[in-house]
């Protein structure tokens, strides 16, 4: 665990916390982007270049923008008037968050029994990732592709339907 790791981890955590705690929705979205960027840096630090770049490309380049668009096009970016810090469903939220955390923590503990192990991370080239995707994992890849295509067509149909209704 190097010094850089702590800096990046602190940045990521700060971004995540800010995303939850800030009041202005757009600020939250931008803080979330900081968390994404920190995560990408963590990937890069683990020599996982491909995943790191994809994280930037997909999460900062697309997901963050999508979130921002969703905020701007729906509720407006202004700070809500109510001064309550907690929402009404805070208990349910807490339970869900705790459940997710428990599941994740359990999964991590199951996967790596001796967590702080100090082996050298294997260098995985892009070529190997490609070969694995096209060879061993071709079926999941195809399923995901099919799913995405279906989603794409669905989006097109939704958009077309709306257009006809407007006329």
């Amino acid at each position: 665990m190097s010094f850089a790791f702590y800096v990046v981890a602190a940045l990521t955590l700060a971004g995540g916390l800010a995303a939850v705690l800030l009041k202005n929705l757009v600020h939250c979205a931008l803080a979330l982007t900081v968390a994404f960027a920190g995560l990408a840096l963590l990937f890069l630090q683990l020599d996982a270049q491909f995943v790191g770049f994809v994280q930037i490309l997909v999460y900062i380049g697309a997901v963050a923008i999508l979130v921002v668009f969703a905020i701007l096009l729906t509720r407006g970016s202004e700070t809500p008037k109510s001064s309550e810090i907690f929402s009404r469903t805070w208990l349910a939220g807490l339970v869900v968050a705790a459940a997710v955390f428990a599941v994740l923590g359990w999964a991590v503990l199951q996967a790596a029994p001796g967590l702080p192990y100090a082996t050298v991370a294997p260098m995985v080239t892009v070529q190997e990732i490609g070969a694995a995707l096209m060879g061993r994992y071709v079926l999941p890849l195809e399923i995901v592709a099919l799913l995405l295509t279906a989603a794409l067509i669905g989006a097109v149909i939704v958009a077309m339907h709306e257009k006809e209704g407007a006329r």
Partner: peptide
Amino acid sequence: AMGASTEL
């Protein structure tokens, strides 16, 4: 990836 960050 860098090009995508300029959008933000």
